[in-house]
């Protein structure tokens, strides 16, 4: 068996391949569902209904997708320039931390001013988290995978320390949680009675901005060039190092805003379980989207609906909700295979 590059890729195949990958992943996971003793169709039906079947389900799914769009975008921007930011989790917490400090009473402004300021400060906090790793990489060749990954734990421990100490909510009944942000700092809900909040609009806006930057601006041109072929970009006289730094700052900044969006839109206050690994899942989201800024929206919605749907499925059908993790992983593998098959054809010989 050999793989041969396709000389022409039919457009239909480009559209069909990801759909086929998703279908394949559902088929592959059907075995697990059956193994846990549930009927396959019933279980998948419950999953679909739980994710998309009602206004409430949709609200939950998109509320879950919102932080994933931010972290997915952060990963996509960085990976596109071959900067492997594995630290979106830490950047998210850094963003959440700074707005907790500013938003629980220190700043008292009109919401129209308060929210932009908090968006910017959370972005700055996230970006600063990546400044160290990117400078270490550029000047000393330190592998950013290691530095960004380890910073996640450092930030989480710092948050833990602060939540047990100076930031601890005196009304929190002893739980390690911060005071809730003030009303002016809250992101408004989109529908009465549902948890979906305007952080989603912010996430969509950023996807659009990143996409336009990537295809229309000089910086976007440089970022793509550095990502595709750093040697040729350097030879052509592009400022490779400064492009790397800018990429890292943008990536970290977007991940930081995810922290703001979760605290100000979803939870109301900073806790240690603010993010169930949104930073890491963002990497999967970015890969599923093939690093496309707009594709991130779709893949984040997909991943979120699996998680939300699987919760519903496990409540009603008794299938463990861990199946969601398996399904997301399997769908990623299927997607990678489908990408391969779009570029290459199999020859049996």
């Amino acid at each position: 068996m050999r793989l041969e590059p396709r000389t022409r890729v039919p457009f239909a195949l480009v559209i069909f391949a990801p759909v086929a990958a998703i279908v394949a992943s559902f088929v592959l996971c059907a075995g697990l569902v059956a193994w846990s003793g549930a009927s396959i169709f019933e279980a998948y039906g419950l999953l679909l209904k739980g994710a998309l079947g009602s206004g409430f389900a949709l609200s939950e799914t998109f509320a879950r997708a919102t932080p994933l769009i931010f972290t997915g975008l952060a990963a996509a921007v960085a990976f596109k320039s071959r900067f492997w930011n594995i630290g979106a989790e830490g950047q998210l917490y850094a963003g959440a931390l700074i707005i907790t400090v500013l938003g629980t009473g220190m700043l008292d402004l009109h919401p129209g001013l308060m929210i932009p300021i908090l968006v910017i400060t959370s972005a700055v906090a996230g970006a600063l988290m990546l400044l160290g790793p990117v400078l270490l990489k550029i000047h000393f060749g330190v592998d950013e995978v290691v530095t960004t990954l380890l910073l996640n734990f450092i930030v989480l421990l710092l948050v833990s320390l602060l939540l047990e100490g100076p930031l601890k909510d005196p009304m929190g009944l002893g739980w390690p949680q911060a005071e809730p942000v003030t009303e002016a700092a809250e992101l408004p809900r989109l529908f009465r009675g549902l948890r979906l909040h305007s952080g989603l609009l912010l996430a969509l806006l950023f996807s659009l901005i990143i996409w336009i930057v990537s295809i229309r601006t000089t910086l976007g041109y440089e970022m793509r060039a550095v990502g595709f072929n750093q040697k040729a970009a350097r030879f052509a006289g592009m400022p490779v190092k400064s492009v790397m730094i800018k990429t890292a700052l943008i990536s970290g900044g977007i991940a930081g805003i995810a922290g703001f969006s979760e605290v100000a839109g979803m939870k109301g206050n900073l806790t240690l379980d603010l993010s169930p690994g949104f930073g890491y899942t963002g990497i999967v989201v970015a890969m599923l989207a093939q690093l496309h800024p707009l594709g991130v929206i779709i893949s984040a919605a997909f991943v979120a609906s699996i998680f939300v749907g699987a919760d519903a499925m496990s409540r009603s059908a008794g299938v463990p909700s861990y199946i969601a993790d398996v399904m997301v992983s399997v769908s990623l593998l299927c997607m990678l295979v489908s990408v391969l098959l779009v570029r290459f054809r199999i020859r049996w010989s």
Partner: peptide, 12 residues
């Protein structure tokens, strides 16, 4: 490896 960026267009 140095002269062109293969995944970008002729124009780029």
């Amino acid at each position: 490896s140095q002269g062109v960026i293969g995944d970008m267009t002729l124009a780029e």
